[in-house]
Structure formats: C-alpha cells, structure tokens
C-alpha cells in the first residue's frame, strides 16, 4: 500500500489555512479584497436590472459534473444563488442556463432553494433554470435567443465554456448588453479578452463567490489561495535556482 504523502499534505495545509482564515476574518472588519473591475460592474449591473426591471442571465457552462471542470460551474452556482437573492424582486427574475443535464438540475435546485429561503416559492418557475443545449455549439445556439428575446440587460457567464463562448459574448455585444465572463479553458479565455466587456482571467473566476458576498468561507478560501500561490511561486523559484546551480 503506497501513500501519497505530498498530495495529502498539500490538501490538509489548504484545509488548515481555510479554517484558520475563517477564524481570523471573524475578528477583522471588511473583506480586505483587491479591486477587480469586473465585479464592480457586476454590482452596478445587478442594481440597474432591479431598478429598470430587466433580466439578468447567468450561465454556468457545460462542464462535466464528475470532472474538475465542475468546480467552475459550482462557483457559477454560488453566484447564481447570491444574484437571485438580490434580484428576486425584479419584474423579470434572473434566468440560468447550462449546457449539461446535471448542471441544469443543479441550477433549478439552486433557484428553487433560494426562492424558498426568501419565502417566495410562488415566484419560482422551473423554466428559469434551463438546459440550453447538450453539445458545445447547440448550447451556444440555445443561449442566443435568451439574450436576444428575453429582455436581458447583463450576461454573467461563469463556468466551464469552450470556444463557443465567443458566439454568446459577441451576440451580447451586438445587443448592447453587458457580458461578464470567466472560464477555466485557456483558449476560451483568450476569446473572452477580445469579445467580453469584462473578463475573469485564471483564478479570478474562483473568487466570484467572495466578491458577490456568498459567505465568509469564500473570503477565507481566497486568502488561503493567496498563501498557497506564494508558496508555489517560492518552491518553483527555489527548484529552478537549484537546477541552475546543479547545471553550472
């Protein structure tokens, strides 16, 4: 029986840091987060949608729920829950789309439980959480009519998307709706840089929950990520320097 001590140590350190920061953050005032322009615009977009009665469209992508891509969609679900809580009073409540059957069910469940916790289950309609399509381009094609025909003022695309996201963001641009997007796919991130109004690059995607006020654990995990990132940078530099010295 062979144990992977390094991997286990890494996960336990991460776990310890999240728990530690959750206790430290209780004593501190404010979240101490750096400014990310995309989230400032998101806050404005939510306020505007509630005021003028337009709809927010939140898409959680098409990541496989049994693979690592699902975590990007889980961040999207945390944001969906928070945005629905804030914007549930709007004349046009938020709408969620997914490109995977399991994610569509999770989106519906998140919307239903949010309305239930607000005591407004009567306002929940099962078609607010939709499977827009089950292949990459059918998902994009199924999402486009929502942006064009359902009085959407902002598209929040947070999840695992491939290059098909370009079709969604360019349509958002043509309809003059705000597109805020983040994905775990590197080529799709390059596409977002050219087509989205605001893009979440790399780990900014996973900071979504902390910035929309999804809970103190989101902020604690963000601080833990910072520590782990600096530790990784130090290890990479030390190893590279060691290799260089050995080669000389």
């Amino acid at each position: 029986m062979e144990m992977d001590i390094t991997g286990l140590g890494l996960v336990l350190s991460f776990f310890g840091l999240i728990v530690g920061f959750s206790f430290i953050n209780r004593r501190r005032s404010g979240a101490n987060l750096r400014e990310i322009p995309a989230f400032s615009r998101l806050r404005n977009a939510i306020e505007l949608a509630v005021e003028d009665g337009t709809r927010l469209h939140i898409s959680i992508g098409r990541g496989d729920i049994t693979g690592p891509q699902s975590t990007a969609a889980f961040v999207g679900l945390s944001m969906l829950k928070r945005i629905t809580t804030v914007a549930s009073d709007s004349d046009n409540p938020p709408i969620a789309t997914a490109g995977d059957g399991a994610l569509a069910l999770l989106a519906q469940d998140t919307l239903r439980s949010t309305y239930q916790s607000l005591g407004a289950l009567n306002n929940y309609d099962i078609t607010q959480g939709r499977a827009a399509g089950l292949t990459p381009f059918s998902f994009a094609a199924g999402t486009l009519p929502i942006i064009s025909d359902e009085d959407v003022s902002a598209n929040i695309l947070v999840g695992s998307f491939g290059t098909e996201i370009g079709l969604i963001t360019t349509t958002g641009g043509h309809r003059q709706t705000l597109s805020l997007a983040g994905t775990d796919n590197i080529p799709a991130q390059a596409i977002l840089y050219a087509t989205a109004d605001e893009q979440l690059i790399g780990e900014e995607l996973y900071a979504g929950g902390a910035y929309v006020g999804a809970g103190p654990m989101h902020i604690a995990s963000l601080h833990a990520q910072d520590i782990m990132r600096w530790a990784l940078i130090a290890i990479i530099i030390i190893r590279a320097f060691g290799e260089l010295l050995t080669a000389l």
Binding site: V11, G202, S221
Partner: peptide, 29 residues
C-alpha cells in the same frame, strides 16, 4: 498559460474543499 493553469488548479482545490466542508452547497440545501 502554465501560470494561469496553476491559478485554476488552486481555485479548483479551494472550491472542492469548501464543498467538502459544507460551506458551499451546489446541491440546493
């Protein structure tokens, strides 16, 4: 791209741990 992937990896682990701790509940709840 490798730098971005490292960031994505860290974010993935953090999100997974939040779910294991019950702080994130994407299954409704």
């Amino acid at each position: 791209a490798r730098g971005i992937l490292l960031g994505i990896g860290l974010g993935t682990v953090a999100t997974g741990l939040r779910i294991l701790m019950g702080a994130d509940r994407p299954f409704g709840g």
